[in-house]
Design a protein around this nucleic acid. Structure first.
Lengths: 232, 232
DNA sequence: CTGCATCCGCCTCGATACTG
DNA sequence: CAGTATCGAGGCGGATGCAG
């Protein structure tokens, strides 16, 4: 029962003593997407084993990374603490690295819309934010999240907005195919694997924000072309 | 022998399939510091087990993260590939998170100068780079590395420079104490745990670069106070 | 029915011994 | 020096049981 430790006075080893064991970071991934109940975590993590999940949650709570919280009505659930939320950057950085590792055979694995959302979030490049205020609503397998661009900064949040500049609908696997550069977004549109509603000129800006389109940054400087419109 | 996999079509899970097993990220940490020979890795990772180390190295080579290389004279050794070097950001992000987790009792663990170097690198904040070109040479337990500030950008590299603005000498544990904010750098100077040679006015700029000093950013704007000096 | 705890087979881990 | 071979202990994964 004594927790295994690397026994090193090193920031990285200390971090791994907390989140380095099997399944732990994937539990945190799920809670980075949204708070969850125990059964939801079990479902999102096929193969985890009920005892192991309970153990991990307990360790994360003791480490101050996760706390109990009300999810849905008044059932028991879990959410990240401030300290756990601080893992978003490290986790997104790892996911960004992993996007380049996605093998073709991995496509036979499990997929959820939340993972596509996290992949999009990992791709957002604050150095490529367009000079217009607008927002891109995404409907991935009927789970909705939105990227809001305002004042030169891009943010992502769950749920819809009233007046999205464009609404992009697709499925999780397609979105991950695109994010991992195995599928060209324009080809995906042509194949009807992705549909877009709204101002068509926002699409290249959206793709450029994710680093998926445009060798140069000339699209981001088209400040005048689409100014003063809906956006939230 | 079949590698265990999470079986998820998710960038994070894919990354963890490659670097998520026990010891793997710590091996990468060592290679991020510098190329190593097999025996050096064994020594830097107490408790790893020779077979496991060989297994992990083999897996990392198959994944294209590590390759064999000449280290020192003409002995066999290992270094990161370009793909492995791309793990620097995720690993530093995790270390940055871990710096806040360092417990007092962790100080009984093993320490090496390389880990202190990585801690310093994790703390470097490109938004706090001073407006002067200078460089800070660090001597940690007789291992030397240097932070070079030029053109508004800070870089770190192993080894000395000819004309450091300041030279900071200390031991690894003290440096990690400071980086994890358990020890005030000024107090460490007073206690002789750290010694500084060179232009004393560079010290607050150095500490501010690491986010260890100064509540505001007024030090970074002191462009005139220390312009046009050595610093290579 | 959800949220776990218990039990069990297996595989990974970690230590030691051994070989090219 | 750079690993391979071996083996006990324990973490992991799956099935089942039970309490709120």
């Amino acid at each position: 029962m004594a927790k295994r430790s690397y026994g090193q006075y090193c920031a990285l080893a200390q971090a791994l003593d907390v989140v380095g064991e099997r399944w732990t970071i994937l539990i945190i991934r799920e809670l980075l997407i949204r708070p969850r109940r125990y059964a939801e975590l079990l479902q999102a993590l096929p193969g985890v084993g009920t005892n192991l999940l309970a153990d991990r949650i307990r360790q994360l709570m003791e480490a101050g990374v996760v706390r109990a919280a009300d999810v849905h009505d008044r059932r028991s659930g879990y959410e990240l603490t401030t300290r756990g939320e601080a893992l978003r950057e490290p986790v997104l950085a790892l996911a960004r690295w992993g996007l380049e590792t996605m093998t073709e055979q991995a496509r036979s694995g499990h997929v959820t819309p939340g993972w596509a959302q996290l992949g999009v979030e990992a791709l957002i490049d604050q150095a490529r934010v367009p000079d217009v205020d607008e927002c891109y609503m995404m409907n991935v397998d009927d789970e909705i999240f939105t990227i809001v661009v305002s004042n030169g900064h891009a943010r992502i949040h769950r749920g819809p907005v009233d007046q999205p500049t464009i609404t992009i609908s697709t499925d999780a696997m397609t979105m991950i195919d695109i994010g991992s550069r195995k599928l060209d977004p324009i080809a995906a549109l042509a194949d009807q694997r992705v549909s877009v509603i709204g101002r068509a000129d926002a699409m290249p800006r959206f793709l450029h924000l994710l680093g998926l389109y445009g060798p140069s940054s000339h699209l981001t400087n088209a400040r005048q072309t689409a100014a003063g419109q809906a956006g939230r």
